[in-house]
Amino acid sequence: MVGRVKGKVIVVTGAASGIGLGTVERLIEEGAFVLAADIQDEKGANLEARFKDKLIYRHCDVTDEAQVKAILDQAADHFGGVDGLFNNAGSAGVMSPLEEVESKDWKAIFDILVTSVFYGTKHAVPHLTKRGGGAIVNTASIAGLEAGWGPIAYSTAKAAVIHFSKVAAAQLCAKNIRVNAICPGLIATSIFGTALGMPREQADQLAALIAHQGGTAQPIGRAGQPSDIAEAVLMFMSDAGSFMTGTHLVVDGGITIGPRHAWDPAAPSPMASIFGDALPTPQG
């Protein structure tokens, strides 16, 4: 079905690359008008030229409340209103173990991953209310659900995004505003490279490598693509998600389905090392 968000005005942060870019492309394909916000101005300008009359780009540091408010106001001024917000901008932050994390780095990752979501949601509410309601989608992560998928500050912040989405949904349901979170798994984006301190171009090359080899790590034998997350955002923004609020959707290729031996017959089970020959041989 084409046109699932036809005529809707949606603001997307972190829109110039990765999940944000994939989502912008999908939303526009389905008929939306988009304000794309990012700090990558050259990529943003290219995006605006590519989708002339359908998209405007604005520079936005999402840790600055005034700038977040401004992009929502600008979207409303330019397109006549706001129907949805995708709080997507983010960073992996420092990769240090707990005892080596500096307080300034802890605060910085919470500013970009959690406080920015609060800013966006807060300043979207008046605009969505004027339209009779709308949808807010927040990028969380499987790192917010289980240990082992990200650094400690990032993982803790993403858990906060999941819970924020639930509490915000409860408070905003009377305004017909739905709030949900998406928990991506291994998605081929530059976030992994930038977390390792790589320059953007090199980080983009690493994303391509993940796309090529990432399928070996999960039951669905390919790495996730930004388009996979874009489909989930589209669902939440469209009428297909009209009965969903305060929840989180895991989009991870099954990587959190269980330990490798649960889905890969070639992987040794830890039960075998405990019980040995006492385990029955699988039949079939």
Rank of each mutant, 00 (worst) to 15 (best):
N138M: 12
G193T: 01
W106N: 08
G150M: 05
K158I: 05
V125A: 12
T129S: 11
T115K: 15
A157P: 03
I136K: 08
T129P: 05
E99C: 09
P151E: 04
K166T: 06
S165Q: 08
I112F: 07
V101G: 01
D105I: 00
V117L: 08
K122S: 11
A143H: 05
H123L: 03
S96W: 14
R131K: 15
L98K: 10
V94I: 07
G197Q: 14
V101L: 09
E100W: 08
T121W: 02
I142F: 07
V94A: 04
H127F: 12
S141P: 05
K175L: 09
S116N: 08
M198V: 01
F192L: 06
K166N: 08
M95T: 08
S116P: 07
G93T: 03
E201S: 13
C183V: 02
I152Q: 11
A188D: 02
D111T: 00
A157C: 08
G150T: 05
A147F: 11
S190R: 15
V117R: 00
I109R: 01
A170L: 14
W149G: 03
L128S: 06
T139S: 15
C183M: 03
V161H: 14
H123I: 00
A203G: 10
I152D: 04
S96G: 08
L128E: 00
A160V: 08
S91I: 01
K107W: 05
